[in-house]
Nucleic acid binder design. Structure first.
Lengths: 331, 331
DNA sequence: CTGAAAGCGCTTACAG
DNA sequence: CTGAAAGCGCTTACAG
């Protein structure tokens, strides 16, 4: 391994000068700078991460805590994960991947063994058991999702209440008065996953004065069929559908077709999520999850917390609608 | 931060003794052992990862290199990633996540700065440009996927040629003589992604003496429709379908239904992959990707390489068939 | 603008 | 069975 003293020797300077060239923490003469940089390149020098962490108490590693549940929509998660890696790299950070299944002990282990400088936590629930643990850690963390009581922890999320309102408005504006919601699976509400509850409350508020009906829906084919049957049984007049359940979306579309409800002229639909909105028979009107923006903000909040200039804040992103052809005026 | 000397003081021993208790590298009296372990627990001590890496030249970190392409089936990738994390933890390893988009420089950076002990590389292509880089690194790597010339690098993959044969056999055994393959998207073949080519060759071999027809198929709705039209135009007698394209599977099923080809009595189908096999209207007969097994073996190969006892080998897993209700005897 | 040196927290020969 | 000490490769006051 090439070490800093190899570079120093090669460039004819001291090790500390090499270090300062790398960090830019003190001014260096143009000539020295040039020689050191040349040596670094020539020797293909990379500072030893462990040595650096030991000396500086900085790892330049972000720990990403992902849920290990299987009832989560995989493509959405994967987008988050890749986005975190590419965003972190822009700040010269690498990403250590943790699953929640090691529990609180895993978080403590990584924090106390100085493997990461900060934590990014995905899929935060209303009453997330990880929150008290994160709070007592010696390192900052940023929540993706909003718990009931974030305390001092910064949070980022889509404003799901506003998203629900946006979906309903899109349908109401087209004249629909009888609107159904295909929501997340029951287990998601039971667990108190924060975004599901916030979306539901937004939906309920937005449909005041309209005829609203809601079904929580597991993603499997049979459950989706049952949900639709029940929903239309409760209110046969439903002509507008909001789907907040990416995993079930494919089955919902198939089952509507099976039931002969043609989209958009017989049933209008707005979906939350984006996965293959463009790849459908009828391009969907969607409220996409702004993954990139959420991750960018989350990483920025983490960087700010690491600089010590952090004021805890909850950032709710305003939902945007992406128009497709799945909403038509009510006939 | 609690350091090893804090523990040593608390337990009334030297720091080296604490270290040896932790590593088990020399025998310790029962009494000392007990006292040290008690102190470790009481003080909630976790060794500083950087210091440990510096002193031992071991990080206990595995770097997982994932592709950044968007044409990859996200759920399958996510399963890999989570599986790698949980499997690595069983070996007391953590996982650093890298994307291929940093290129060769990214691999060199991580290897030379001693951020990881070994590399696990996903989605390896036939002529993967990362292979020469991996070979010159000072650290071992394991490929998930089989390139044309793995050289000294150990590989793990499903035996995709055998998988194709297994699929065809399932249909042929049911009396089908006209068999179609819905393959991966054109871009996957163009890129020379290894598994796609091996599957195709297996399919071609297995269908000798039968009437075979093949279409490479993008996952979007229109492309799937076109593929099916072309496929049935080329051979209207096709009654058996092999689908090696998880992303397109949903659309294939929808389009078969749209065309009035009822499964399984009018069209039999075998799919490679597993994602929601059980959640379909008709449960699918599938050849699942043995993700867990592949990852377990990949991690074991990495561990063995780190112990120096590595003989480079290519491990091709035998495909299993998981019976559903999507294959019926030819009428 | 630059260097010599202490110190970060471990592991591991060396010694007994 | 155990300890004292060197050394891993950095960063950063301290000094000039």
């Amino acid at each position: 391994m090439v070490s800093i003293s190899d570079v120093a020797e090669d460039a004819g300077v001291s090790a500390s000068t090499v270090s300062y060239v790398l960090s830019g923490k003190r001014s260096i003469s143009a000539d020295t700078q040039r020689r050191v940089e040349a040596s670094i390149r020539r020797l293909n020098y990379h500072p030893h991460a462990g040595a650096r962490a030991l000396a500086s108490s900085r790892t330049n590693v972000l720990a990403l805590v992902m849920p290990l549940r299987t009832d989560i929509h995989m493509p959405a998660m994967m987008r988050f994960v890749t986005s975190v890696v590419t965003t972190a790299r822009r700040h010269d950070y690498d990403v250590l991947l943790l699953t929640s299944d090691e529990g609180p002990a895993g978080l403590r282990r990584v924090a106390n063994s100085a493997m990461a400088d900060a934590f990014l936590v995905m899929e935060v629930q209303s009453d997330d058991p990880r929150i008290p643990v994160l709070r007592e850690l010696s390192r900052p963390s940023v929540l993706i999702g909003v718990p009931d009581d974030p305390g001092e922890l910064p949070c980022v999320d889509l404003d799901f209440a506003a998203a629900a309102k946006r979906c309903v408005a899109e349908l109401a504006d087209a004249g629909h008065t009888d609107i159904g919601l295909i929501g997340s699976p029951p287990v998601v509400y039971e667990r108190g996953t924060s975004f599901a509850g916030r979306f539901l409350r937004g939906f309920q508020e937005a449909t005041r004065g309209l005829n609203a009906v809601m079904r929580s829906c597991a993603p499997d084919y049979e459950a989706v069929g049952r949900c639709l049957d029940e929903l239309f049984a409760e209110n046969p007049e439903v002509t507008g559908l909001v789907v907040h359940n990416e995993a079930a979306l494919g089955s919902v579309l198939a089952e509507l077709r099976n039931r002969g409800r043609h989209m958009p002229d017989e049933i209008s639909l707005v979906a939350v999520g984006q996965d293959t909105a463009a790849h459908r028979e009828v391009p969907l009107t969607t409220v996409p999850l702004p993954t990139e923006d959420m991750v960018r903000i989350a990483v920025e909040l983490a960087m700010r917390a690491l600089q010590g200039s952090s004021t805890p804040e909850t950032r709710l992103l305003t939902p945007q609608i992406s128009p497709g052809k799945s909403v038509a005026p009510r006939r």
